[in-house]
């Protein structure tokens, strides 16, 4: 563990994350999230659902990028298609790709000699995150930690803005969440290692959160929204 984890985990990283609420805004509009208990439930559901998938893809992307110079030829397209298939809602796919595009821009500026073009113009966020993690000298478990914490931190800070929660209380929720994030990341990294050994990408975790898919779909039809997703 090193400073690279803090670099890529910093919410101020200029990679577009601040504009996304990860479905939280719509859950608030529907009245599903309205206090700290319902926020905690939302975050747990998100973490053990899509969070586990994001973490596994970040981990397998880290393994694919490898600790040295990133390979020119790598199964980025296969991973991209697998994550697409696991992201049912089209707006959620678009949000993931928008954030991936922004993160790739940052990564390309920070590590300009790496073959970022191979990931595509708008790759999924988790995949760029995993690749960038290795450039920041992190391993696959740490890449998974980044992805898992990202899944809960974004909605939590959106909740502070949308519901005027006490930021200290929300930090208490996030502190509870940290152990869960570590657990999800550990399991995701294990799964990624197993799959990476034989390249059988279909066996990557495929959890989903139907409620979040619904939120993502409904969000694009709202007239007044603060967050892009």
């Amino acid at each position: 563990m090193g400073a690279g984890l803090l670099l890529l985990g910093d919410s101020r990283l200029p990679a577009g994350g601040y504009a996304h609420s990860g479905g939280l805004e719509n859950a608030v509009l529907r009245g599903e999230v309205h206090d700290l208990d319902t926020l905690t439930e939302f975050l747990l559901g998100k973490l053990y659902g899509t969070g586990a998938v994001q973490a596994a893809f970040a981990a397998v992307a880290a393994l694919t990028a490898g600790p040295y110079t990133m390979p020119e030829v790598a199964p980025w397209a296969e991973l991209d298609a697998e994550l697409d298939a696991r992201t049912a809602a089209a707006p959620a796919r678009a949000a993931s790709r928008a954030q991936g595009r922004s993160l790739r821009r940052v990564a390309k500026a920070a590590w300009p000699t790496e073959p970022w073009a191979a990931l595509g113009v708008s790759p999924h966020h988790a995949i760029v995150l995993g690749a960038a993690a290795t450039r920041a000298r992190l391993d696959e478990r740490e890449a998974a930690v980044l992805a898992a914490t990202n899944v809960v931190n974004g909605p939590a800070s959106a909740a502070v803005k949308l519901l005027s929660f006490d930021p200290i209380s929300v930090t208490v929720v996030l502190a509870e969440m940290a152990g869960h994030c570590d657990q999800v990341a550990e399991e995701a990294a294990d799964a990624a290692r197993t799959v990476f050994a034989d390249g059988d990408w279909e066996r990557l975790p495929c959890w989903s959160s139907v409620g979040l898919d619904v939120c993502a779909e409904l969000h694009v039809h709202e007239e007044v929204v603060h967050f892009a997703s």
Binding site: G16, G17, A19
Partner: peptide, 21 residues
Amino acid sequence: AVQTGCCPHTAVRDDISGNLD
């Protein structure tokens, strides 16, 4: 149109990625 996640100044100053896109 760019969506600014409750932070109009962030979108043009601290994290310009949405605008760059």
